[in-house]
Simulated assay, not measured.
Amino acid sequence: MQEDAYARILANPRFLELTSKRSRFAWLLSAIMLVVFYGYVLVVAFRPDLLATKLYDGATLSVGVPIGAAIIVLAWLLTTLYVARANTEFERLNQQIIEELK
């Protein structure tokens, strides 16, 4: 019984659409995060003077600190974006697949 249900799910065009969309979106968000993070690491490795620049004359805080904090915030935003899409579009497709199995 369950094997039949699995076969029907795997053959369902909506399931293929769901897995395709979810995979593309996850890879896109991952690529954005990797480019930003490793870009920052490369700047730290090869041009640390850029990040060591003070925010303003007499400041003790360098440019690198807010940029690092922005990278952390970007990770939260990308996670929030994924969760929002998962709870709307991906969940809608998931419910349609479940309804078709009944």
Score class of each variant (00 low, 15 high):
55 L>F: 05
92 R>I: 07
46 F>D: 07
53 T>Y: 01
83 V>P: 03
41 V>R: 14
70 A>E: 04
68 G>I: 01
1 M>H: 13
93 L>T: 01
12 N>Y: 02
80 T>F: 14
87 N>F: 08
14 R>A: 10
88 T>C: 00
48 P>W: 09
79 T>H: 14
63 V>T: 09
15 F>S: 09
14 R>K: 15
77 L>P: 02
63 V>Q: 04
86 A>M: 00
83 V>R: 14
95 Q>S: 11
49 D>W: 07
47 R>M: 13
46 F>V: 11
83 V>W: 06
73 V>P: 00
38 Y>H: 03
102 K>P: 02
74 L>F: 08
70 A>F: 03
58 G>Q: 12
26 A>H: 10
61 L>F: 03
4 D>Q: 12
51 L>K: 07
29 L>Y: 01
46 F>I: 08
20 S>R: 08
76 W>E: 08
53 T>I: 09
72 I>G: 15
50 L>C: 05
24 R>Q: 13
22 R>F: 01
61 L>M: 11
3 E>T: 10
58 G>E: 08
70 A>M: 10
70 A>S: 13
102 K>S: 13
8 R>Q: 11
63 V>G: 02
2 Q>E: 07
26 A>E: 12
85 R>A: 00
82 Y>Q: 11
54 K>F: 05
59 A>S: 15
61 L>C: 02
74 L>K: 02
91 E>V: 04
9 I>M: 13
9 I>H: 12
22 R>Y: 00
61 L>R: 03
57 D>A: 15
12 N>T: 05
52 A>S: 09
41 V>A: 15
100 E>H: 11
8 R>G: 06
22 R>V: 00
13 P>H: 04
99 E>V: 04
